[in-house]
Amino acid sequence: MAQVIEVRNLSKRYGDKVAVDGLSFTVRPGRVTGFLGPNGAGKTTTMRMMLDLDRPTTGQVLIDGSRYRRLAEPLRRVGALLDANAVHGGRSAHDHLLWLAQSNRIPSTRVREVLELTGLESVAGRRAGGFSLGMAQRLGIAAALLGDPPVLLLDEPVNGLDPEGVLWIRTLMKGLAAEGRTVFVSSHLMSETALAAEHLIVIGRGRLLADTTVRDLVEADPRSYVRIRTPEPERMHTALTHSGIRVREAPDGALEVYGTETGKIGELAAAAGLAVHEASAQPVSLEEAFMRLTEDVVDHRAGGRR
């Protein structure tokens, strides 16, 4: 049960608006778990409830079997990046980390270490109010790593970062997971998340839409198909349709075969004595799979229905 985060029947209501609606899932150690959903899906609210910043309307979150509020010296157990700008602008990066360290009896030598780790040593004495978003994000990461915690909760860590910073965070998260830590990272960008995360929790309008691996998410999409080119498309069409397989004709004369795999088609073709010039799997992109999953729950689509 080490370092497991359990979210149980979690709900949050603001007046009559439901932000999080009966969420249950488990986050396990040793891998990066992506927490995905369109903007406004309830990701940040969920993470705030994980940290006991917001009170759930129902349900609870358990970290190693206990509520966050019950953890002694919680920065040594859970590191969190919520809002990188939530730093007093008049305080230096070093001093911000220093008070955090002191609150959890973390030795002040660790402050230097995380400043170096996040590449902030040269600006440690500068007031955080003058930081760029990228620097603020690094300071937030430094704060999360301060207690060398086995669990990390990161809310949109790549927001506002340049490509170099994005790569840095991705490598860092993978490294932390490889060390056996639990890494839970939210994003509204599927493609970016898929590069770092093995496991995905997808939510929309506060509800769980998928708790799956990146691979399964793509394969489960009914729009993934196999493209077939053959000199006798009519016969191939008939052979496949007879086996109960859905086939569509592409404009260039090729066939799009749905709901099956390349091997199965090859066998059918061989049985019918048909030549096949091309058989290629055409999985939907992660972005497409994600959008299909969330299309019914997006609140504000550009130019879409209201």
Binding site: D52, A80, A86
Partner: peptide, 18 residues
């Protein structure tokens, strides 16, 4: 008041949740 205007309150309560 600065805890609320700067948002530091969230870091503070994450560090000392009680």
């Amino acid at each position: 008041g600065a805890e609320y205007s700067s948002g530091t309150i969230r870091a503070s309560l994450t560090a000392v949740p009680r």
